[in-house]
């Protein structure tokens, strides 16, 4: 009975999360008339019309490429910076470094809208608008606080004697980090990169403001189908599906490590 209740709860919860995605996919295959029919149609004649429109009448491939470049760049740079920051704050711990970690969260506490205008002005004055690097740097700032905190927990999970043993065995501190700490952080690195990839991939506000024709990302591209009078829901949904697919594939591939990574920080073996 308890099991049944638990299962029921899981089913309901999954439904809550899965329903919008299912709805999105359904809309992307519906004719315009079916999209607005009341009551909603669960069974309908499918069409690829919206996908055709998306791929033929927009630069979706460019958007996809831009998103990919920015997300991968953000993840790469973000991981590098946050790994060094997390390591430094763990091993040279002081009152300052502890505060530093939490002060990073100020970045997250500020609503993006509050800083988007100043950042826009800086970027425009330095001719950095419509530039991959600008977007990557801004995205790194968004990802950094969580990445540092996550990675710090993973580093704390590795006994410091392991590093000391490596240092006595002939490694420098950096050598010990590279040869012993880093290999043991695999799951942590994967979990952090998934998170950072998704955050950058979905980011809208800054991408919208700071990108131009050549750097538009997918979330920004979606808005192209919102005209003054009409909103092309079918195309928007199709583009949403296109947007979900790469992240979904990546996440499912590394799922095994992701689960391990997300729990490893919390549970001591």
């Amino acid at each position: 009975m308890k099991r049944l209740a638990a299962n029921l709860l899981l089913i309901i919860l999954s439904a809550v999360y899965v329903f919008p995605i299912v709805w999105l996919i359904m809309i992307s295959f519906k004719y315009q008339v079916d999209i607005f029919s009341i009551p909603p149609k669960w069974i309908f004649a499918p069409t690829l019309e919206h996908y055709r429109n998306v791929f033929l009448n927009s630069s979706v491939i460019d958007f996809l490429a831009n998103s990919l470049i920015i997300a991968v760049g953000t993840t790469g740079l973000g991981l590098l910076v946050s790994l060094l920051a997390a390591y430094g704050c763990t091993h040279y711990a002081s009152k300052i470094s502890n505060r530093f970690i939490y002060s990073l969260f100020l970045l997250r506490m500020l609503p993006g809208v509050a800083v988007v205008v100043p950042i826009y002005l800086v970027a425009s004055k330095t001719a950095m608008l419509d530039n991959y690097l600008t977007l990557i740097l801004v995205h790194v700032c968004i990802v950094l606080p969580i990445a540092v905190l996550m990675l710090q927990n993973f580093i704390l999970d590795i006994p410091k004697e392991l590093e000391e043993a490596a240092m006595i065995d002939g490694c420098s501190r950096f050598g010990a980090f590279k040869r012993v700490v880093l290999p043991l952080m695999g799951p942590g690195l994967i979990a952090t990169s998934v998170l950072s990839l998704i955050m950058s991939w979905n980011e809208f506000l800054f991408s919208m403001t700071l990108s131009g024709y050549s750097t538009q990302t997918l979330p920004v591209g979606v808005t192209a189908f919102m005209a003054d009078k009409t909103i092309n829901w079918g195309e928007i949904a199709a583009m949403g599906v296109v947007m979900i697919i790469p992240v979904a594939i990546f996440t499912l591939t590394v799922q095994k490590y992701l689960v391990k990574g997300l729990t490893m920080g919390a549970v001591k073996e």
Partner: peptide, 8 residues
């Protein structure tokens, strides 16, 4: 080391 500190 007391906890052996073997590289896992």
């Amino acid at each position: 080391f007391q906890n052996y500190a073997l590289y896992p």
